[in-house]
Design a protein around this nucleic acid. Structure first.
Lengths: 129, 129
DNA sequence: TCACGCCTTTACGTTAGCGTCAAACAACTG
DNA sequence: CAGTTGTTTGACGCTAACGTAAAGGCGTGA
């Protein structure tokens, strides 16, 4: 049995999350060492709540987008800056990031269009052969 | 003077391209060592043509999208597979890559939407304060 | 001729993001 | 009580993608 009480659906062990997201426990500990998540402790054992799980989802999405953990950390900071930060600074950071993402969106759409074109060419070749 | 004759606008030195794209000559040599580009030689000196320059643009776009050089290499292979490859294999690879890119597109749109939301929240806070 | 600027190759250094033991502890199970 | 399973903290290893000298060749201009 998991060291975390399964009667409480809000709690996850490190192995639970690793399995759910198809990553290693080592990776999760590494993210914690970098300050991306900070699960509670039950003695020495990590205990993850919904918040940690949600952050993990954001982390993995960031990775799919090719961001470094450093970038993801910055993004998470924006994300949970509901209160506690200088709003002006926050807005600035958000704007910066949005510009990068929109550049990336353009790149992505161009690339997808090109692949569609390549696919089309390939099909034409099949037909005419 | 550049070792490449400037009268011929089709030719670029390694420094020309490095400067134009804001990368190091080391990076360009590294890409060649990985087979992503293969400029001609004039003696020992690299001579880049339009094709090499075009490839470099694709490489840099791939990097902005967070792809590894290995991935970019695969992508380039699709790109110049106008002829010379098994069409069926080509189509398969294209399809694979398109799926990844469309996942990435979804991630990206979600992230952008979230940042817009955060920006909105921040603005509301300013107004109500 | 000699310094300069740009080119080359070789090679070691560096950072990120984990993988992979190792050693030790805690709880359950037969 | 021994064994299995899951946890912890080190600590060393590894690949990618270059950075950074070091040492030398080639052509030009004073």
């Amino acid at each position: 049995m998991s060291p975390v009480d399964p009667e409480n659906a809000e709690l996850y062990s490190i192995a639970d999350l690793a399995k759910e997201f198809g990553i290693s426990t080592r990776a999760i500990r590494f993210y914690e060492s970098k300050g991306l998540i900070s699960p509670e402790r039950l003695g020495a054992t990590r205990v993850f709540r919904r918040r940690d799980r949600a952050r993990l989802i954001l982390i993995l999405r960031g990775k799919r987008l090719g961001f470094s953990l450093r970038d993801i950390s910055d993004y998470l900071a924006l994300y949970d800056a509901d209160r506690g930060q200088q709003v002006s600074l926050l807005a600035e950071k958000v704007e910066e990031r949005l510009e990068l993402l929109e550049q990336q969106l353009t790149d992505l759409q161009t690339t997808i269009a090109e692949l569609h074109e390549i696919r089309k060419l390939a099909r034409d070749r099949v037909v005419s052969s």
